[in-house]
Simulated scan of single mutants.
Amino acid sequence: MTTTDDPRDTGAPYDAELMAASTDLGAALRELIEASVVSTVPAEEIAAAADLVRRATARVGESRRAAAQLPALDDPSVGRRVFNPVVGIGNAIAPPLLVRREEGGVVAEITLGVAYEGPPSYVHGGMSALFMDQLLGSAAGAAGLWGMTAHLELDYRGPLPLQTPLVLRAWVDSNEGRKSVIAGTIALAAEPDRPLVEARGIFVMPRPEKVQAYFGAITDAAGKHTPPRRPGDATSVQWS
C-alpha cells in the first residue's frame, strides 16, 4: 500500500491564485520546450515565436527575487518546492517528478519527452543522475533521515527510451550516525524488476557550523531570515 503526502494541505498558507497561475505557466512552458525541439516549421515561424517568448519573458521578469530568497509559494519544511528543477510544478525544466511514499521507500513514474534526449531516442544519462539524486534524497527524508549528497554513483545497464513510461524507486540501504546510504533504480514501467539504471548515494548531515555557512543568508519571501530547518528540506517528498 502506498501513501501520498500533499504539502499543499499543510505548512504555511499560500496564494492559491498565484499557485494556479504558476502551475499553469510551468505546464505551458514545458509544452513550448517540447514543441521547440521537435518542431519542423519554417524559420520565419521559429523567429516569430522567439519574439513572442522574449516579450513574455520581459513581462514575467519585471520583478524578480534574489537567489537567496525563498519563493512566496514555497514551504521547504513540508516539501513544498514549487520551482525545484526535478519536482517543481512551476519549473519548466522539471518533468515534474511526482514522488510518493511506498512500503520500504519512495516511488515515482514519469514519461520523458524529446527535450530530455541524449543519444537519439533515449534519455540523456545526466538526467538519470539528476532524477536519482532527487529521489534518493526523498527516500532519506521519507525515512526521517536527512543530509546533503556527498557521493553519487550510477550504473547504466541499458538506455532509457523516450516517450515510454518509466518507474523510479529509492530506499534506505543503511544509516550510521550522520551518514546514510540510499539506493535506487530506474526501469521501464512495464518491466519494473529489470533496472536499466542503478544508483547509490551517500548523504551526510552537515555539522551545525556548516549548516550556518551554507544557509545562513536564506530569507523568506518577505525578506525575513529563514534558513532551512534542515538541509534535507530541499528533497522532501512531493505531492501527486
Rank of each mutant, 00 (worst) to 15 (best):
A94E: 04
P95H: 09
G79M: 02
M127G: 03
G125R: 13
I93R: 13
N84W: 00
R64F: 05
G90L: 12
V114H: 14
P76K: 03
M132F: 08
S138T: 00
Y122K: 13
D133R: 06
F131L: 15
P96S: 04
Y116K: 10
Y116M: 12
V107N: 04
E153S: 15
P76G: 01
D74R: 03
A143Q: 04
S63V: 15
Y122Q: 13
G104M: 08
G88L: 07
L145G: 02
Q134Y: 09
G126Y: 04
M148V: 15
V107W: 04
G118V: 13
P96M: 11
S138A: 14
A129V: 09
R100N: 12
T111H: 04
S77F: 00
A72W: 03
G118R: 14
N91T: 06
A150T: 07
L136K: 05
P71L: 03
A94S: 12
V123D: 01
G90T: 11
A143G: 03
H151L: 11
A67W: 11
N84V: 01
R80C: 00
G79W: 00
G125H: 08
P76H: 00
P120S: 14
P120D: 12
S77V: 08
A92K: 10
P71H: 03
G137I: 00
S128H: 10
F83C: 02
L136W: 01
I93Y: 05
L152S: 02
S63F: 11
P96W: 04
T111S: 09
A129H: 06
I110N: 07
Y156P: 08
R64V: 15
R81N: 11
A139D: 00
P95E: 11
